[in-house]
Design a binder for these strands. Structure first.
Lengths: 329, 329
DNA sequence: TTGAAAGCGCTAACAT
DNA sequence: ATGTTAGCGCTTTCAA
C-alpha cells in the first residue's frame, strides 16, 4: 500500500501538494494536479484515515447507543442516522448496551479515547450521570428517550399526547375497561405514556383501575405475552389494551389468540411504534406511528452540528395514530 | 484532554514508561508504575486511539456488511459478531448496503483507507469481483452467503440439506402439492434451497410443478404476501408452502389468513431462519433454525484470526427443523 | 503555486 | 528498569 510520500515522489512534487490535491485545495495548477492524479492512479494509492484522523484529531465516527439491535423500532432510526452520517462523510459505530453498564462503559471509553466524535443515545437505561460527565467534553444527543428538564439536547415525540390519542381512540370506540401494558416506569417515556393514558380516562370520567396496569421489565414479545396472561387473571377482564410498544402489543395479541378470543370483538388492542411487523399480524395492529427515519436524520444532523460547535436545540416531532384491524371490526 | 507527554512530565518519567504502563509491560518497577498511574488519574488521562492506531497501523474495527438492518435474521448474527469482537478489543462498523453498489463502494473504501481491519460480508448481492480484489490486501470472511468453489473463507449452513429436511417434513405429513417461495436465484442460497426442495420431491416421486415455484425480488414481508397471492392464482392450489425465509413465510401466512383459510388444515407452511417473530404468529411457524448467534461468533473469530495472519478454514454449521403449529394441527 | 518542516499521540527499537 | 528517538501518514503554517 502506497503512502503519500511515494505518490509525491512519483509525481515529482512535495507531500504538501499531494495533500492539496486530495483535499481539493484550489491552489494547485492544473498540470501539477494532473501529474499527482496520475501518480495516485499508478500506485493505486488510497489515503490512510489513520494518519488523517490523527492529524485532524477526529475519527468521523458517530457512536450510536441502542439497548437492543433486535428491537425493530430502532432499525428505521438507525437507517436515518446512517444515511445522514454518510452524506456528511461520517460513519456510525452501532453499539448495543443490552442495558449492561459494563458494556456502556466500554462505549463511553471509545469516545474518551477519540475513537468516536460524539454520541447519539437511544438507550432509556443509560447512566445519565455518566452521560453528563461525558457531555462536558463530548457532543451528545439523546434520541427518543431524553432527560426532562436536563441540558442534553434531544429529538423525540410527545409521548404523553400520543398515548392520550391512542387511548381516546379506544374510548371513542365505546371502551371503558382499558388496560395498559407499560414498560418499566423508571423510563421517562413510560411515565409519560401512562400520564397520557390516565389523562384520557379522566377526561371521560373513567376511573383508573390499578389491576389493569401492568409494567414489564423489557419490551420483548414475551413480555407482552406475560402481561396479557396477568391481565386475564384480573377479576374483571378489560375489553381493550393499550401497549406502549408494538412488540408488547404483538405478544399480547398472541396470548389473546391462544385463548381463542377475537380481536377486536372480544378485546381491542393498540400498539406503539408502527414497526414493519405490525402490519403482518392477524388482525393488523392499530398503532401510533413515530417518524423513526426522520428522527434518526434529525439526531444525526444535530450531533454533527454539535461536533462542529454549532449550538443545537431539542426537537419534538409529530406522531400519528394508524387505525387498523385490531380496533376496527 | 491530557496526552501522554503531560502524563510523563507529571509523573517525572519518559513517555516510553507511560506507554509501558498503559500496555501492561512488565518491565516497570512497582513504584514507577504507581507514580504513572497517579499522574493518569490526576490528569484524567485517556489514551488516544488515534495515535495508537496510526502507530500500530490498525483500526481495530471490523466492517460488517449486511443488506438490510431491518431483517431480523441478521440481528442475532450481529450480536454474536459484536460480543466476540468486544471480547477481543475490537469493535464493529455496521454497514447496510441496501444492495446498493454505490454504498458498497463507500464501505470497501473504508477498508482500503485503513478505517477497518477486515470485512465480514453477509450481503448476498455483494459484488464478488470487487470483494476478491479487496481480498488481495485485506482479510475477508463471508457469512451465510458464500462463493461456492471460491477461495474466500466462509461460515454457513448446508442450505440444500436444510431445505430438503423442511420439504421432507411436509411430505411425511402427507403433502404432495408443495409450493416453494424462493428468493432470487441469482443468490447461491436460493439455488441451494431450491435444489433441496426438488431433491425431496424427487425422492418421493413427486413431480416438480413450475407453477408452484415463485421467486421474489427481496425477502420482506410484502414479498411473501405477493408470492402467496400469485400461488393462489395457480390452477391447482398447493396444500403446503415452503418459504426460504421467515419473513416471506410470515407474509404468506398473512395472505392465507386474509383469505380466510386455516393453517395448517387448508395450507401448511414452513419458514426458514427462526427469527424471534416466528413464534408470535398465529399459528406459530414451523421453521429451520440457523445457529445465528454462533455463526456471528465464528465469523468474527475467523476474521480476527485472519487479521493476525492465521490461516482460517471455512465452516458449515448445523441447522435444526423446529416443528410448530403451522404444520401441526 | 509550491516546498520544507513541524507535529498530531502513540509505540518500540535501541541505548544506557 | 528507564530514557531517547524515530516514525506511523497525514495536514497546515510559513516561507519562498
Amino acid at each position: 500500500m502506497a503512502n503519500i510520500q511515494q505518490v509525491a515522489q512519483k509525481a515529482g512534487v512535495s507531500v504538501a501538494t499531494v495533500s492539496r490535491v486530495l483535499n481539493n485545495n484550489t491552489t494547485v495548477s492544473p498540470e501539477t494536479r494532473l501529474r499527482v492524479e496520475n501518480a495516485i492512479k499508478d500506485l493505486n494509492y488510497e489515503p490512510s484515515m489513520l494518519g488523517r484522523n490523527l492529524r485532524n484529531s477526529e475519527s468521523r465516527l458517530l457512536l450510536v447507543l441502542i439497548p437492543s439491535i433486535s428491537n425493530p423500532f430502532y432499525s428505521e432510526i438507525i437507517n436515518g442516522i446512517q444515511n445522514t452520517a454518510i452524506a456528511n462523510n461520517y460513519n456510525i459505530l452501532l453499539c448495543e448496551t443490552d442495558s449492561n453498564p459494563e458494556r456502556e462503559n466500554i462505549y463511553f471509553n471509545m469516545v474518551k479515547n477519540k475513537l468516536a466524535d460524539g454520541i447519539i443515545s437511544m438507550d432509556p437505561a443509560v447512566n445519565m450521570q455518566k452521560l453528563y460527565e461525558l457531555a462536558e467534553n463530548h457532543p451528545i444527543i439523546l434520541c427518543s428517550e431524553y432527560d426532562e428538564g436536563g441540558s442534553l439536547p434531544y429529538v423525540t415525540i410527545d409521548s404523553e399526547l400520543a398515548a392520550y390519542h391512542a387511548v381516546k381512540h379506544l374510548i371513542k370506540l365505546g371502551h371503558k375497561n382499558i388496560a395498559l401494558i407499560n414498560s418499566d416506569e423508571k423510563f421517562l417515556y413510560a411515565r409519560q405514556r401512562r400520564a397520557g393514558y390516565e389523562k384520557a380516562l379522566k377526561e371521560f370520567d373513567i376511573p383508573v383501575h390499578k389491576e389493569w396496569i401492568y409494567n414489564t421489565i423489557h419490551v420483548d414479545f414475551q413480555d407482552g405475552v406475560q402481561a396479557m396472561r396477568k391481565l386475564f387473571q384480573s377479576n374483571e377482564r378489560p375489553s381493550a389494551v393499550f401497549a406502549v410498544s408494538d412488540t408488547l402489543a404483538i405478544g399480547a395479541l398472541k396470548e389473546i389468540n391462544v385463548r381463542g378470543l377475537k380481536v377486536p370483538e372480544d378485546m381491542a388492542i393498540v400498539g406503539f411504534d408502527k414497526i414493519n411487523f405490525s402490519n403482518m399480524t392477524n388482525p393488523t395492529l392499530t398503532t401510533v406511528a413515530q417518524p423513526m427515519y426522520e428522527m434518526g436524520c434529525v439526531a444525526a444532523g444535530m450531533l454533527m452540528n454539535s461536533i462542529k460547535g454549532i449550538r443545537v436545540d431539542s426537537i419534538i416531532l409529530d406522531h400519528e395514530l394508524i387505525i387498523r384491524e385490531s380496533t376496527m371490526g
